[in-house]
Nucleic acid binder design. Structure first.
Length: 271
DNA sequence: AGATGTCCCTGGAAGC
DNA sequence: TGCTTCCAGGGACATC
């Protein structure tokens, strides 16, 4: 499933190649999570300026307006000068002078939304409430700790909410909490400053590492079956219920928090 | 306001 | 074997 690192790796894979391209046509398949929000024909003739990322959204900037692309959980993007005919799960395609950008998304949790600018109400609704970027300077241990002090729910759920820091999905939340020895059910405001700093470092480390690995494994990923992505190979706790902890051998536990599964080592994450 | 629960969707796995 | 049920995931939205 696309997490922040994969979205970033996807961005890097086509941003330079699509920059400067002129839009020829836009084709839609079945409805995605939200409607496009403009007449597809309107976009013909516009030029692609750049592709940026905010959280898990890709921002395809045009000379006028932009497209916000979210991969949901089963979405993937392809950009190529020629592609086979659109299949049943290809729900968005941007034909340009430099190639075709296609969204393949069987579960249709993804979305492509047009906004006239970043200040547009549609863009603000999607991006306005997002927390800081974890791999940028705005994410620092002290302000992270300060933000956690205001929250009483479980630290795992606060991480997932994405309004303090973006990009920590269900997998990385479990992994980062394991790395920092913190129990996922601990109230966010109960983290001491040093423990918050340790969690901060773990989040940065786990995401940075995934971006680095994503670069080399995305190729296998696209040719591989299903979701056995790079991360599964070396997860410390995620998806390892009942298996021995890689550090202490204690069986890994799975619990539910807010309808989501959380994995932890009850010995390494005592409090 | 924060916290919590629900919903969207489909393919694969598990259960009967 | 073939059916049904459950589960995965992000995030908007409703409700308390």
């Amino acid at each position: 499933m696309p997490e922040l690192p994969e979205v970033e790796v996807t961005r890097r894979s086509f941003a330079d190649r699509i920059a400067g391209a002129q839009v020829r046509a836009l084709q839609l398949g079945k409805p995605l999570r939200w409607p496009l929000g403009c007449d597809p024909a309107e976009l013909a003739g516009r030029q692609v300026r750049s592709v940026a990322r905010r959280g898990k959204y890709l921002l395809v900037h045009l000379d006028e307006g932009l497209l916000l692309v979210h991969l949901g959980m089963s979405g993937s993007l392809q950009f190529a000068t020629s592609l086979p005919p659109r299949g049943v799960h290809d729900h968005f395609e941007l034909q340009t002078s430099q190639g075709m950008l296609r969204l393949h998304d069987p579960r249709r949790f993804g979305a492509v939304v047009y906004a006239s600018s970043l200040d547009d109400a549609r863009a603000l609704k999607l991006l306005g409430g997002l927390g800081v970027e974890p791999l940028e300077a705005g994410f620092d241990p002290l302000s992270f700790h300060r933000a956690l002090q205001l929250r009483r729910s479980a630290i795992k759920q606060v991480l997932l909410a994405g309004d303090i820091v973006v990009g920590v999905g269900n997998i990385y939340a479990s992994e980062a909490l394991f790395m920092s020895g913190i129990r996922p059910t601990l109230r966010a405001d109960r983290l001491s400053k040093p423990r918050a700093a340790r969690l901060h470092a773990a989040i940065v480390q786990v995401l940075q590492r995934a971006v680095a690995l994503g670069g080399s494994t995305l190729r296998d990923f696209s040719s591989a079956e299903g979701q056995s992505g790079y991360f599964q190979l070396d997860a410390m706790v995620y998806g390892r219920e009942g298996l021995p902890c890689r550090v202490c051998g204690t069986p890994i536990q799975a619990i539910r928090q807010g309808q989501r599964s959380t994995f932890l080592c009850p010995a390494c994450q005592k409090k």
